[in-house]
């Protein structure tokens, strides 16, 4: 953000102006994101609490080891790394869109907004594939002395500890909360990505219609950018909690 030089004894708080040198809209966006951080924080902390209360928790390297088109190859966290990469790249294009907005470069804003929207849609598609894979993938587990197959849903989970059964090693049902939290929290994050994409599409249309150009500034792009980066920020923690530890 280009800032004019501020005198040493400048009275930020004396009234008649913003003490932070930002418009109310940006201020509200920041504080909204802070409150949204508490929504996600509450979800993730609940997840952590339940996980701490369990004796056993599935190993993400085994749960998330598939890649589209790779068959049964064991590729731990490869696909989610790709998703993370897509999301962070879409953040980069968002930064470039905001930067183009600072320079009143309408063409640049349009170009980078399109890339960002595309990145968001790509991420959502990846998530859809990952969900489908978990929901349709059946695994053999031992329940009440019988071998059955289970998929990963909000109410059961095949990723439990392995035990010895008739001389072979077989899985048992894992903690049910795993699926509930996984689908709940990645779903809530995905919902944020989706709404971010919708906001970005609206911003793109408004840019195309010269709304911001006539207004004299592209601050709306900046605010949409804050929201988009926040979605990326939340993913850092979702990624950490579900895939890495």
């Amino acid at each position: 953000m280009a800032q004019t030089a501020v005198p040493q004894e400048y009275k930020w708080w004396s009234g008649g102006k913003s003490p932070f040198n930002v418009s109310y809209g940006k201020l509200m966006m920041w504080y909204f994101l802070m409150s949204d951080a508490f929504t996600f924080g509450a979800f993730l902390i609940s997840y952590g609490t339940i996980r701490f209360s369990q004796e056993y928790w599935p190993n993400p390297n085994h749960v998330f080891n598939a890649f589209p088109g790779a068959g049964h190859a064991d590729l731990p966290l490869a696909f989610v790394s790709l998703m993370t990469f897509i999301l962070i790249i879409s953040s980069v294009t968002m930064v470039l869109a905001v930067h183009a907005g600072h320079n009143m470069d309408k063409k640049g804003v349009q170009k980078y907004m399109l890339w960002t929207i595309l990145g968001g849609i790509a991420f959502l598609s990846c998530q859809a594939w990952e969900w489908t894979h978990l929901l349709t993938g059946y695994h053999e587990v031992l329940i009440d002395g019988k071998l059955t197959t289970l998929n990963t849903t909000v109410s059961h989970n095949p990723w439990g500890a392995h035990v010895e059964y008739n001389g072979q090693h077989v899985g048992t049902p894992g903690p049910v909360a795993f699926g509930g939290y996984f689908f709940g929290i990645t779903g809530f994050h995905g919902f944020h990505v989706f709404s971010g994409v919708v906001i970005n599409i609206i911003m793109y249309i408004m840019t195309t219609k010269d709304v911001f150009h006539n207004r004299g500034h592209y601050e709306m792009i900046e605010k949409a950018g804050l929201y988009w980066h926040f979605v990326d920020l939340v993913w850092v923690f979702v990624f950490l909690c579900f895939y890495l530890i």
Binding site: M1, A2, T4, K17, S23, N103, E219
Partner: peptide, 8 residues
């Protein structure tokens, strides 16, 4: 565009 432009 600077921040001043937005504020003003």
């Amino acid at each position: 565009m600077s921040n001043e432009a937005v504020l003003h």
